[in-house]
Amino acid sequence: MKNKIILLEHGSGGLAGQELISRLFLTHLGNPVLSALEDSAIIETSTGRLAFSTDSYTVDPIFFPGGDIGLLAVHGTINDIAMRGAYPICLSLGVILEEGLLISDLENIVLSIKEASEKAGVPVVTGDTKVVPKGKGDKIFINTSGIGIVPDGVNISVKEARPGDIIMLSGTIADHGVAILTRRAGISIQGDLKSDTMALHRLVQLLVETLPEAVHTLRDPTRGGIATAFNEIAKTAGVGMDIDESKIPIRPEVEAACELLGLDPLYLASEGKFLALIAPEYAAQALDMIRLQPEGRDAAIVGRVTKDPASRVVLKTAVGGARLVESLSGEPLPRIC
């Protein structure tokens, strides 16, 4: 690594972070489960398979249109577990508080966590609190870990992607990223720009139970957006991807905000959407089913997995051209989750 010190871009969810993880963490800690770099780890036990995942949240601002850091912390970990087809059963909650944080703000965050965990049916079963001196943190950082149960016969993994699979998005892209960035930029745009933070485990459960053989791969396109998620899958599975830009669902106000700020929505985070690779024979049925659920109203088929070009993502642009899509690299995006 050329850098001697950690830069903000190491945390942006793009190539710099991937390099840090592989050259440092995987070099020293790597094992077959960790090195797979899936959204959650699957652990074999004598009584069945468990999914285990952890995630930390540092979003600024801590309250944003459509949610707050507490909602994000519950939904994010639930979704990481669901991305292996597992059903989450419990969460841990660790908070690092900066001296000076208003207790009323903390209470509002705890109430959000309560609401999100009750609504999802996934309780917080263990926790920890630490306080750091003023200036040594930023109001509140949260870590959540979660455990889920993987149903028998379910084997959803980035490695399962195969040519011919249909690529589906469960809804509109970039809502969370745009809500945070416009709030930080102080830009108010007509319309309802808010985070899409939402738990997806019920939608995944329905999909997995009804069509057990349909889903090969699931990924939630958080930091780095769908562009980075597509690339991660293409590179890990050694497949190509053919994406149709005009089919990608995006809300008009989100598109307008991206135009204004010069941002590419393909790189902006969603916090309540998944992308699914589905066996072609089940695609129509899966899409109909997802669209009937509130979490998947705007779901759409956006492309297909190909054999060539291996490890590359090709976008057919809305105006009829074609180009490559690369992973996020080094954009100075602020802390968004």
């Binding site: 057919k316 642009t317 051209g321 180009r323």
Partner: peptide
Amino acid sequence: IFRHGLRSM
């Protein structure tokens, strides 16, 4: 030009 894939057209 790149973003819209115009070079390919």
